[in-house]
Design a protein around this nucleic acid. Structure first.
Lengths: 191, 191
DNA sequence: CTCCCTGGATAACATACGTTATATAATATA
DNA sequence: TATATTATATAACGTATGTTATCCAGGGAG
């Protein structure tokens, strides 16, 4: 064998993530990672074939973090949980969140698609939502997704009032959900 | 005098804009502009002191475009007009829109601040909105801004269903506006 | 103890960038 | 026509990037 390993794969990814978190994904560079670790670029190329491979590993870490955030929310209402998890990601990792938004980001698209189906099923079990057709549920869900994306983007881009807390975001999010649902019910009754 | 001018300031800005529109603001470079114009970088440096000055001119053009889009909407309902103009910008110049969203972008923040005041005044004249306090109007406006940002971002990031038209966006936008207003009225009556 | 494998450092190559110094050529004016 | 002006081209400098070839040194296998 050879000398002791001083710089692990995990340490490299963690360092890359730290740069992404503070300066943005685009400003990651091999030399910058190396400098931050106190090494040369050699250990990076031992662990990763090239930049693409490192970026893939970084995306895996980001996905895993967002998954953890979701699992930490456990009200049993996935509708609510996903909204809060997304808001937390957008506020705690705002730079990365904005980077992902620009990218067109398969990340966002996949995340979205995967959730939609599960959510519709959950909505059908919700007592507040009985009596709606699947199409009506889809419309409600879509409106809420739009609102949640808007709130997340505004949070990550400094477009919210100063000191707007996660709690306030949560309130306005569920408040708007109520608006949408209440109005849908009214429209149904008027028919 | 000297030889005829072959590359004007406007042509340079237009070329930079074209690169921004297709590849993103970040991927503008002096050499790329020059190549696209079929010139060297010299004409650019005659017309602009440096990259910063060119970027300023580019932002001016972007602002002017967004202003034009707004002026093309003329229903007299600024609430509606701003929403549609923003949606059109987000769809027609999606790459630039996303770039501006990331940037934290004074552009968005200024745009936002400037509009809020004018909008509140307009809302007070709206017959559908009589009886609301200023605070209630602010909440309604805020919810609509969030929804509109969300819809614009989703449009620009390919998160909407395929072939989702501007008309459909317009419908869901005004539909949600109705939801929010109707619910606010209901809550008021219940008090 | 010696050899060899391998993690790491160093430095180079190629590329792309902003910027600038210099050269060239075209044109209006004297 | 000659000259001064100036729009443009060319090429260089300095910097940052990804990638790779080469060298060094430490530690287990024989």
């Amino acid at each position: 064998m050879g000398p002791k390993v001083k710089f692990t794969k995990e340490q490299i990814i963690e360092t890359a993530f730290e740069i992404a978190r503070t300066e943005g994904i685009e400003s990651i560079s091999m030399r910058k990672i190396a400098e931050k670790m106190g090494s040369s670029v050699a250990p990076i190329y031992v662990n990763f074939k090239n930049t693409d491979e490192l970026n893939e590993a970084l995306m895996d870490k980001i996905i895993s973090i967002s998954r953890n955030l979701l699992e930490e929310e456990n009200t049993g209402n996935p509708f609510h949980d996903i909204g809060i998890a997304s808001l937390r990601f957008a506020t705690e990792y705002s730079v990365i969140f904005r980077d992902l938004v620009i990218k067109g980001s398969k990340f966002m698209q996949d995340y979205d698609k995967k959730m939609t189906l599960a959510l519709i099923e959950e909505m059908q079990k919700d007592s507040k939502l009985t009596g709606f057709s699947v199409d009506e549920l889809k419309t409600i869900l879509f409106k809420m997704r739009v609102f949640q994306v808007g709130l997340s983007v505004m949070a990550a881009s400094g477009l919210l009032p100063k000191d707007y807390s996660i709690q306030e975001m949560e309130d306005i999010l569920s408040g708007t959900a109520d608006d949408v649902i209440m109005s849908a019910k009214l429209r149904k009754e008027m028919q």
